[in-house]
């Protein structure tokens, strides 16, 4: 009796875990085998119909491919820009504290609000960007109604919003680096580029991987900017899985089918991010160890 007593302390946590993770997950799995939709509520059993429909759903798989492209592209740009800005802030520029705060503002803004601001910039008829182009004598661009410009607009909005996050993590990493390797490089007469390539960058690898992984996890849910800027359009040119699942589940009320899509999306995201994490870990491992 006394032996088992400490286990009771686990109970609140366990109940919470069951209530907010395990039960919803099991329930979602059960829902995928039903036909719950706008006109048929409740848990009937239709076997694997939703799963086979999903396997044939070209729009869903297309949105996943688009997500790969969008998330990798935006995170790569965020990493490069974030690293560059962090290096500037690390090396010391005038009014460093002021700029550090300034660079963080986009990240501190509500994503949907930021997307609305970007929409007002990209809106084709009365938007600021086309107004600017008009002033310099250029033709307006269909930022939100042509596939290429629409993807560009989303990329810009994402990069603007999340580069500060990279900056913050990478700057923290840079500030924590030991000074000795840099002193040794300076004594050896290494150029700034060589110092960066041979000392700074390798030492920053674990932190970079952490930052990239966190951003990739976050970017795999891209929704706010897509929904607000383009609603997945033109056609389906910018539709991401999150936008598509939202459409199916909460606008069309195909609860069961939407659950199937969401569950698959979750499994794929976990698998992909685990593989990427492993690859990164292997790449960052110092040779010879």
């Amino acid at each position: 009796m006394k032996k088992g007593y400490p286990r009771f302390f686990l109970l609140p946590g366990l109940i919470l875990l069951i209530a907010i993770i395990i039960f919803p997950l099991l329930f979602t799995i059960r829902v995928t085998f039903s036909s719950w939709n706008v006109s048929q509520s409740g848990l009937n059993f239709i076997g694997g119909e939703n799963w086979s429909e999903m396997a044939r759903d070209v729009r869903y798989w297309g949105s996943l491919l688009r997500l790969f492209y969008l998330s990798f592209l935006t995170v790569a740009i965020q990493y490069v820009l974030g690293f560059a800005i962090a290096l500037f802030a690390w090396k010391g520029i005038a009014a460093r504290r002021f700029f550090r705060v300034l660079w963080l503002i986009p990240m501190m803004t509500t994503p949907s609000l930021m997307a609305i601001i970007w929409r007002s910039i990209f809106t084709e008829d009365i938007g600021a960007l086309n107004g600017l182009l008009n002033r310099v004598g250029l033709d307006p661009v269909n930022w939100l109604t042509e596939s290429g410009p629409a993807n560009f607009a989303i990329t810009i909005a994402e990069v603007w919003q999340w580069t500060p996050f990279m900056f913050l993590i990478l700057l923290a990493g840079l500030l924590s680096l030991p000074k000795e390797p840099f002193m040794a490089a300076a004594i050896d007469g290494a150029s700034a580029w060589k110092t960066f390539a041979r000392v700074t960058f390798p030492m920053m690898a674990p932190i970079s991987i952490g930052a990239i992984m966190i951003r990739l996890i976050d970017a795999s849910k891209i929704f706010d900017s897509v929904f607000t800027l383009t609603r997945g359009g033109p056609g389906n040119a910018t539709e991401t899985p999150a936008a598509y699942i939202f459409q199916r589940s909460l606008q069309d009320f195909q609860i069961a089918y939407g659950s199937t899509l969401a569950l698959t999306y979750l499994i794929l995201a976990i698998l992909t991010l685990t593989i990427i994490g492993k690859v990164f870990a292997r790449l960052s491992k110092p040779k010879g160890i």
Binding site: S147, G233, G235
Partner: peptide
């Protein structure tokens, strides 16, 4: 709407 949007965008 999804189908019409694809046609309007020249995707089909």
């Amino acid at each position: 709407e999804n189908a019409v949007a694809k046609a309007l965008a020249g995707q089909a």
